[in-house]
Amino acid sequence: MLRSTWILFSTHAVRTARSKRALLCFGLTLVPVLIAALIRLVAGETGGSPPAVAVGYIIVLQTIVPIVAVVLGSSVVAEEVEDRTITYLITRPIPRVAILLGRWLASALVISLLLALCAFVVVTLLDGAGVASSESAVPAGFRSRLVRVAVAGGLVYSAVFAAMGSFLKRPVLLGLGYAFAVEFLLSTLPFASQRITLQYYLKSLLFAGDPELVARFSGSLVKLELATPEEATRTLVVAGALALGLGATILSRRQVLLSA
């Protein structure tokens, strides 16, 4: 299985990077960059912590990460079905799980690169030199934390959407619906229901370990006690693994009905 996963990963990493979907995602990652540049331009020296954390969390983590993951993650199996090329793969002596894993890894690589770059540039732009006071400085380690959490979010969300794409007909629409109707909404409301969203654990990873940051955003971005970094990491890993496991199980039993 490892060999066929590697073959599909190495083939599709290049294809995914050159695809129209990747180009669209690149365009999407420019949105927070442009917003950051605009804030930097308008706010001048008063840039710094609040805009960096707000843009980093709301625009990058809550919005761009799920969208990029939907666009590239949901296509992992669904694109093969839509393009009717899956026949060539499922009639080879390889486990079907390798199709999901190989293609997901290829998408995950592109997603990670795009989101890491986006998060890095956004915080860098808003962490302006000559910030007026220490109050408005971007907290130490926030940039690298946002980069890591954006990549983690991209990986987990793409695993979920890849799994959805292995059995749903319109995974992009349903994925966007899930990302915004469930994840965005629930994670914004100040209720314990936040804990059933991936966003809650991503937010925990971003804020936890920095009590000062939590205190500054308590009541606005942080409305609920956060999970510990260990718990958040564990939950995200389990969620991603469960999603891929479910997708692999469904794909291995799935009948492929393609039009001529």
Binding site: T11, R84, T87, R92, P93, I94, L258, A260
Partner: peptide, 29 residues
């Protein structure tokens, strides 16, 4: 599938790949 080959009806291929790369990919699989 080691002993079996299938030519489907649908006119679908990986259009961005060359015939050589496509066949080589499927053979490695």
């Amino acid at each position: 599938y080691r002993r079996f080959g299938f030519c489907p009806q649908q006119d679908a291929l990986y259009d961005d790949m060359s015939a050589f790369d496509l066949i080589r990919l499927l053979l490695t699989l």
